[in-house]
Write a protein that binds this DNA or RNA. Structure first.
Length: 124
RNA sequence: CGAGCUAACUAGGCAAUCGCUGCUGUACAUUUUCGGAUGUUACGGGAGAGGAAAGUCCGGGCUCCAUAGGGAAAGGUGCCAGGUAACUCCUGGGGGGCGUAAGCCUACGGAAAGUGCAGCAGAAAAUAUACCGCCUACUUCGGUAGGUAAGGGUGAAAAGGUGCGGUAAGAGCGCACCGCGUGGACGGUAACGUGCAUGGCAGUGUAAACCCCACCGGGAGCAAGACCAAAUAGGAAUCCUUGGGUGCGUCCCGCACUGGAUUCGGGUAGGUCGCUUGAGGUUAUUGGUGACGAUAGCCCUAGAUGAAUGAUUGUCCACGACAGAACCCGGCUUAUCGGUUGGCUCAAAUA
């Protein structure tokens, strides 16, 4: 069983940290619901940052639902190593009304991302 | 029991596991001016969204800026009295409207200061005027002249309304009641009400159109603002050095370049505070019709900042709506699946 806790050192905290991921990302995964950018780091654990725009999700309540789903699936399933900084951006097709569907989408995205990262690491 | 009005309350429950953010206890580590402080640490304990947290529409606290005093403008408010920190809010009362009623709605100052606007219809929308009609006189029997504003027609609205008298037909021409104006009386703090006298009667509506009157009225907002502070630019002071330092060079000479240290100041990234004890809740007594106030006791109930308050599973039921704090309060408005309780009205039934 992996460590499922999610303290502050596993999150992106400042806007400069977000900017580096947007600038120097090595791996991308995209779907109609989300866009994921990842940058390799030398930290002890992978870190997550979320961008849930008001443009696509109008109500604060719905934004909270999306964030919670992302956070839960990330902390439960995403590996610490190889460590990466991840930024996930929500898109228009995201629908917080069906939480189980949202969770399966996110699980697929995370497994796809970790596969891509491991091939990237193997190739150097 | 049915239909309805109204005032409140509530906002899925329980269990297990995995998480998040403050607070707190112990241990540990670091640091120390030995008071303590700090923490990517460990293990405990306890707390963790709303009735609207929303819209940001009003009002206030708080903060900074501006400001001698006064006036004006923009803007706002608009029956009266009270409540309040304050209000466009609330309470009580008055007028008007709706409803059988409980009750609900009401932007409810001024159109006898001025300006603007009012489509169509209609003869005419206010300086007046007369299409049909009614009446009188004349008549060549087609009408003509005059009187009239009752009736018809148009319109949201036609110079008070209804009835009786009156008249050639009519008309406040006269009278009664209602409405309106004026005067004084009584009741009420007042808005206003009641009744009396008097005038035959001013004149359409619109002031969430301009306007007039009365009252209120500086601006920006917690990304307010205060503090700490790597970096970096250009500075200030003090001390040291002008026989110095740095570079080239093995060294000298020589050539090129130009200070150094400390402190202050500055303020970016970042951090800390502001940040939750408050016009606070709650209980009792008490003043008040009430909003609300007074006194005493008790309680402390989110404080995040890339932004927590959740996820999964099981189970029960009425199968869970609208929706997420962001400096804090008081309101208003809007959204909302349901459930519970109190009071009242109408109808029916029983007695």
């Amino acid at each position: 069983m992996p460590d499922q806790s999610f303290p502050a050192y596993r999150r992106l905290l400042t806007s400069s940290e977000f900017d580096t991921v947007f600038k120097d990302n090595h791996v991308r995964v995209s779907s109609p619901e989300f866009l994921v950018l990842a940058a390799l780091t030398n930290l002890p654990a992978s870190r997550l940052g979320m961008v849930i725009g008001k443009k696509n999700t109008n109500q604060a309540n719905d934004r909270n639902k999306i964030k919670r789903a992302i956070r839960e699936t990330f902390r439960k399933n995403f590996p610490h190593q190889p460590s990466v900084d991840v930024v996930i951006v929500s898109r228009k097709a995201v629908d917080p009304e069906f939480p189980t569907k949202l969770n399966t989408i996110l699980d697929e995205i995370w497994s796809k991302l970790s596969r891509k990262i491991s091939t990237k690491v193997d190739n150097g």
